[in-house]
Amino acid sequence: MQNKDILINILRFIILILLQVFILNNINFLGFINPYLYIFFILIFPFNGNKALLIFLSFLLGLCIDFFGDSGGIHAAASVFIAYIRPAFLKFSFGVSYEHDSIKLGKSDFIKRFIYIALMVIIHHVILFSLEIFNTDHILLILKSTLFSSIFSIVLLVTTMSLFSRKS
């Protein structure tokens, strides 16, 4: 990574945490639906970047969100998981050669991009809400929270991504 890339990623890391903690965690749409935009960092981390570094940074990112939300390690667990599984999803959505082509996410096909985002968000939210609720009696609540929050997160992430790609 270039110096500029490192700086951009650090800034993105901090801004996403602050945005998530102070604004998005307080939306509570219909009483319980919050979007989780902070995984944007994991989604657009350079595709050819160091994988071990991404896993570690995702852990830190999740842990910071947990600190603010008093939630144990649920965000850390979900983030680490999607960071580890990311190469598989990239391969699934963009084809085997994603790493060599160095595709720009913003310039890729909309459908491919959408599948990639949706897969990552749904896996993240399933782990997040299963760990948060942690009770098989409330399995319906887990599914309900996952479904509604996923829709909200996916919409927000797709919008954010198109906003940023247009600028560059």
Binding site: I55, F56, F59, G62, L63, D66, S71, G72, G73, I74, A76, A77, V80, F81, Y84, L131, F134
Partner: peptide
């Protein structure tokens, strides 16, 4: 890292 976060949870 995953086990650490599960432990914290």
């Amino acid at each position: 890292l995953f086990l650490v976060s599960i432990g914290l949870t």
